[in-house]
Write a protein that binds this DNA or RNA. Structure first.
Lengths: 114, 114
DNA sequence: CAATCATATGATTAAGTGTTCATATGTTCA
DNA sequence: TGAACATATGAACACTTAATCATATGATTG
């Protein structure tokens, strides 16, 4: 049982499938993307931004979190290009980066709602 | 700055938007779903199952992980209904639970590939 | 039934993560 | 320029989590 079972696939089949898998780096980035979505506070933030831009303070109020917590999470979301922002005086407005974000949220919600 | 900033939204607007957000329980489950995808080993397992069923041993070999690690992850994936399984004698074959899983993986990959 | 194969589980440990508190940065306005 | 506001950042701590090792379960075969 140590390395190869005798269940089904031959070594050459294993090798072929292995080559078809996305590379480790690609998988790493994909996992990282999903990890960002994998926190209740962050998905809440993302939902609050679903169809409007909001300043940090309003996001914090809407999501029942501290300003600091909101800012930390927004930093994470920004670093992973899930949100973008623009400055207007003292205020910084955040919004979803693109429609992929909405799609991913939607697909996830569909799966959860079953 | 403690609770309400004077940026943009009024209290009543805040209240209205807040009511439109998904409930905390829903957000929790959604985040949990994404958290499962948020591990490189697990996405690799999911990709190995993208278009075929595989036994635990082959999954472990394909993903360069131990049998124990594979089993633990498959347990997690199973608990969250991302994979299903069937027994055939000693062997247990795993496969993706449904097309939502493929969709989510696909959407994520699109976002990563930009 | 005993041995073997395939998989599952429990405990332990090291690494990662979110929140909080305190403080810093940057902008506006008087 | 100084005060007030909006946001960002750093450090500390509690909590979670993935990998590993050892062992258990469950099924087949002789």
């Amino acid at each position: 049982m140590d390395e190869n079972c005798s269940c089904t696939l031959t070594d050459s089949e294993i090798e072929r499938i292995k080559n078809d898998l996305p590379g480790d780096e690609e998988l790493y980035y994909l996992a990282e993307l999903f990890r960002i979505f994998g926190d209740p506070t962050r998905v809440k933030i993302l939902y609050s931004l679903f169809d409007m831009e909001l300043c940090v303070c309003d996001i914090a109020t809407l999501c029942d979190i501290s300003q600091s917590s909101a800012s930390h999470h927004l930093r994470t979301l920004r670093a992973n290009k899930l949100v973008k922002f623009r400055r207007n005086g003292k205020t910084i407005f955040y919004s979803l980066a693109d429609d992929h974000v909405r799609s991913i949220m939607g697909q996830g919600m569909e799966h959860v709602e079953e």
